[in-house]
């Protein structure tokens, strides 16, 4: 066979180049082409912590405050993209997630708090560090030299485990933390691949029912306590342009939270409807403490811990992540 002719190569390359340029041109579309009709706001929710807000929508609280809020479920991995691209007006994120985003200059702000890392009305956070039955891990310091599984590295899970070990007088550098998706935890614990794991419900309840032990509660709660867990977010641009709507949203979330606090059982049908949970799972789902306000001090712990473990390079300015 001979080499393809120069001309053929030239045009082949030209075609490939045109394709690449066309693809590049498709990117970067940042115009807000929100699908909502006039006056409607779209909100992508994720995590069961969003339930009190959904309850507020169902009960007409947002309508009362003049907000027509349309909720659509989003994957927990797509909390920023849809906002930035203008696909939705509002989204959710976690307090530590907001700090990491701010550290990378992602222009997203919290318009309202929803939950904190403390346990709520149901008396549990729904996550804990579990060890196999009969394990000699009794205190955080015992994790030194052991392998701990978390579902996401460089997140509140990893930082929480490291910080409880340090707070207990241990050296967190001696703890090996690896990424283990929740569904793989049971096998990994049984085979001895890992010595402990930080898990959330429904996996936590399943593991405890199967004999796993909880030696010292939930490291995330212990470390982050009253820091904001779930917050409602928008782009900075949107929050700056719509200060009245931001105020109305805050009031509506606060009122929804009051309602959920009065009667947490009202959240159970919400879990079933919006998170497609089975009744028995919805029944057992725990809700953290509800808190609509975000005080400037509430990011102090997040700043502290994330800087220590390299989640962010330097402390973030709270005004940078919370809408005025």
């Amino acid at each position: 066979m001979t080499r393809p002719s120069v001309a053929r190569k030239f045009f082949g390359a030209l075609g490939a180049g045109a394709l690449v340029l066309a693809l590049a041109a498709c990117g970067g579309g940042e115009d807000s082409d929100s699908a909502a009709t006039e006056g409607q706001l779209t909100w992508s929710y994720a995590l069961p912590d969003s339930a009190p807000v959904l309850l507020g929508i169902e009960e007409g609280i947002f309508e009362k405050h003049g907000i027509d809020l349309v909720a659509e479920e989003a994957a927990a991995t797509d909390l920023v993209g849809a906002l930035i691209s203008g696909k939705v007006d509002l989204s959710v994120n976690t307090g530590p997630g907001m700090a990491v985003a701010a550290g990378q200059n992602v222009p997203v702000v919290a318009v309202s708090g929803v939950t904190t890392f403390e346990e709520g009305a149901t008396g549990s956070t729904g996550s804990a560090l579990v060890v196999p039955a009969g394990s000699d891990i009794k205190a955080p310091k015992d994790l030194e030299g052991r392998k701990v599984g978390v579902n996401l590295l460089k997140s509140a899970s990893e930082f929480g485990v490291r910080q409880v070990v340090a707070d207990d007088g241990g050296d967190d550098a001696l703890v090996e933390i690896v990424e283990v998706p929740f569904p793989a935890v049971a096998d990994a614990l049984a085979s001895g691949d890992i010595d402990a794991a930080l898990v959330a419900d429904p996996f936590m309840t399943q593991l405890i029912d199967g004999g796993a032990e909880v030696p010292f509660g939930d490291p995330i709660e212990t470390v982050f306590a009253d820091s904001p867990r779930l917050v409602m977010t928008s782009t900075r641009e949107w929050a700056d342009a719509n200060p009245d709507t931001v105020d109305a949203l805050r009031d509506a979330v606060a009122e929804s939270i009051e309602l959920a606090d009065e009667d947490p059982s009202k959240l159970i049908p919400i879990y079933e409807k919006y998170f497609k949970m089975k009744p028995e799972v919805a029944e057992a789902t725990q809700i953290n403490k509800l808190e609509a306000g975000i005080s400037p001090a509430s990011f102090a712990t997040i700043n502290d811990v994330l800087v220590r473990y390299d989640g962010i390079a330097e402390p973030i300015d709270v005004e940078q992540v919370v809408a005025k």
Binding site: Q104, L152, L153, K154, V178, E179
Partner: peptide, 21 residues
């Protein structure tokens, strides 16, 4: 990209997750 704690693929996923584009 699944349950890994090291590697180039893990690094890319982790960078995306932490907005380090």
């Amino acid at each position: 990209l699944f349950g890994s704690s090291e590697g180039i693929g893990y690094f890319i996923l982790q960078s995306q997750r932490s907005y380090a584009i």
